[in-house]
Computed example of a mutant assay.
Amino acid sequence: MEIERSLEPLTKSDLKELYEGCVKRLHEYFLVGQGRKWLELYDIKQPLAVALCQGAAMHYHDKTNGVKDFDVWFFYPFNKKHLPYRTYWNWDYQNPKFGRHPSIPGYMGRKVDVLVRSIKSYADNDPVKTIHQFMRHENTTSSKELAKKAVVMLAPERLLGKVVWYKQKI
């Protein structure tokens, strides 16, 4: 099924599948690939928070936005040097219920973008507060763009599916 925006509801099971696929994709780069150099500064297995953001996150919350693609963000505490913030990794989420976007070639399902950010403004052991501080205090293009839509937690697991941000003005 080819459709620009899937209106199928996202479930916690879908969120968990997205999270697991993104972890796998990041590990391919950071643990066994070219990104191993970052392991001196960052524990890639221990992000502060992982969240589904932007349009798909809005759809999870409002059930009307639709899903064009998925944007999953991994937030880490800044350590001497920022993680590659202009780089992102993709993978093909082939859950048939979401179909395929007709103008994104090379994917059997929906494209998933995996992004990492090392952030200076965070709260130890409080992922929700970390997201809020990033949105309100980092003052970056990314934080401003993400604030315009929604953020749904993927990790830690106890927060899976919690909407922690929805179209707030900063």
Rank of each mutant, 00 (worst) to 15 (best):
M108Y: 00
N65W: 11
D124W: 12
Y76K: 03
K148F: 08
C53Q: 04
F78W: 13
K111N: 06
L160Q: 01
L39A: 04
R110T: 05
K45C: 04
V72A: 04
E145K: 14
P9D: 12
V163C: 01
E20L: 11
R5T: 12
L146R: 00
P105N: 10
S13R: 13
E8Y: 07
Y19F: 14
H82S: 10
E2P: 01
W38E: 06
H101S: 09
K81M: 15
K24Y: 13
Y42H: 05
D113K: 09
Q133R: 14
V128H: 01
N65P: 00
S121E: 15
A155F: 14
V116G: 04
P96G: 05
T11H: 05
K63W: 07
K149W: 00
Q168V: 10
D69W: 06
R36L: 06
G99Y: 05
V152N: 00
P156A: 06
T11L: 06
S142A: 15
D92F: 07
R36V: 11
Q94S: 06
S143V: 02
G55P: 06
A123P: 01
K81A: 07
G35H: 06
H27A: 02
P127R: 12
T64N: 15
P9E: 13
L7V: 03
L160G: 00
A155E: 14
G21S: 12
Q168A: 12
W165C: 04
K37N: 03
Y60R: 05
P9I: 02
